[in-house]
Computed example of a mutant assay.
Amino acid sequence: MRSVHVTGQGTADWVEVDLPPTGPRDVLLRIRACGICGSDALYTRVGGIPPRQGATPLGHEPAAEVVEVGEETSGVEVGDHVVVDTMAFADGLLGSGGAQGALTELVLVRDHVPGRQLRVIPKDIPWHVAALNEPMAVAHHAVNRSGAAPGQRAVVFGAGPIGLGATLSLQAKGVEHVVVVDVQERRLEVAREIGADAVINSAEEDVIARLLALHGAATDALGHPGRAGSDVYIDAAGAPAVLRTALAAAKHRAVLTIPAVHAAPVDIDFGALLATEIDIRTSMGYPTEIFEVTDAIIENSEKYAKIVSHTFPADQALEALELAATPGGADKVVVVFD
């Protein structure tokens, strides 16, 4: 069968691979959709991930259909639609340096454990929406890390897929008011469509002044004014200006959670932050959230569908990778298999 692999530094292509036979405890999946992540562009740019340098299978945001089940396997049946925990494979991470990737026709789940690698979903959920499960789990983990609670006010920097997913998760947590900040008006429009309470175009507006107007004024621990009343900040953009703005706005004991990947070090004046007692937390992956977010996608599939900006047929997967790697070219790209 064919599979998309990194084939060298800066190059990816379709390659022919063999599929091992399905064992008694295995489940065979036919991939129906796979999202493109920013890390796919990174893996391609650097030439793969050792020990598969130059031969890394790509794709770790799949939705799939069960096509074969080993005789000792339970919990799924042929024909089931499933989302996948790509960090729970016996042969390594799916698509992030493991032996298999999800930009392919078939994926073998070795040593299937019921409820561990797969979650059955309703068959009326569109494949391109189901493929959001993995990145939305990343966003949901960031919200869990933030400790956001009902009645609080939150600010999300970055209206890409993770920022939009965090917005939906914050709303599900009962957060009272969610503001989304970005520099692209088309992204902010999507944030409005999924239900953000307010948006700020940071290329045109004073973010802190708007937050003061939206969330009220607050102080640091010493009573110094000029701080916004926002309780939670989420950096889903990965830009130094985001951290500078959030830290300048943060009130006493606000929480800043960072799921974004920052490409370079950022200077922070911790002396100036002492009186805020701000809690800075990083967030990576989805230790428990991979199937926690599934119910939200099932219940609000129309809202989640708005996060997908482009879909491509499988035979255009290489073009999908190229578009997703182009700055400003797309927000969320999903490859859909027939």
Results as ranks from 00 to 15, higher is better:
V178Q: 05
G223N: 02
G165L: 05
Q184C: 07
A148H: 03
G223W: 00
I234T: 06
D206E: 07
G195K: 03
G174R: 00
H215E: 09
S202E: 14
Q184G: 03
P150R: 01
H215A: 10
G147I: 08
K123V: 14
Q184K: 13
P225Y: 07
L188R: 02
A154C: 06
A198F: 09
G174S: 01
A166H: 01
A172S: 13
V232Q: 02
I125V: 15
T167R: 08
R186S: 15
L170G: 02
P135V: 07
L222S: 11
L214N: 06
G163V: 00
D235R: 07
V138A: 15
E204G: 05
A209L: 12
E204Q: 15
A221Y: 11
T167N: 12
P122W: 00
G195W: 12
L212D: 03
N144T: 13
A172C: 03
A172F: 10
I208H: 04
Q171C: 03
R227P: 13
L222E: 14
H128L: 11
A130F: 05
D197W: 08
R119W: 13
S202K: 09
V199Y: 13
H141S: 05
N144W: 15
L211G: 07
G147M: 04
A228Q: 00
T167D: 11
G151D: 02
A221F: 08
D197F: 08
P161M: 00
W127Y: 10
I194V: 15
H224M: 13
N201K: 05
S202A: 14
V178I: 15
V155Q: 03
V155Y: 02
A130C: 12
E185N: 08
Q152L: 07
G160F: 04
G163N: 04
G195V: 05
R145N: 13
R186I: 11
I234W: 04
A218W: 01
A166W: 07
A137C: 09
E189C: 03
D231M: 01
A198K: 02
K123L: 09
F157T: 06
G216P: 09
I200P: 15
V175Y: 06
I234A: 01
L168R: 03
V155T: 11
R187D: 14
A221S: 14
V156F: 09
V180F: 11
E134N: 15
V175G: 03
E193K: 15
L168C: 07
A213K: 12
W127R: 07
G174H: 00
A154E: 04
V183R: 13
V129G: 11
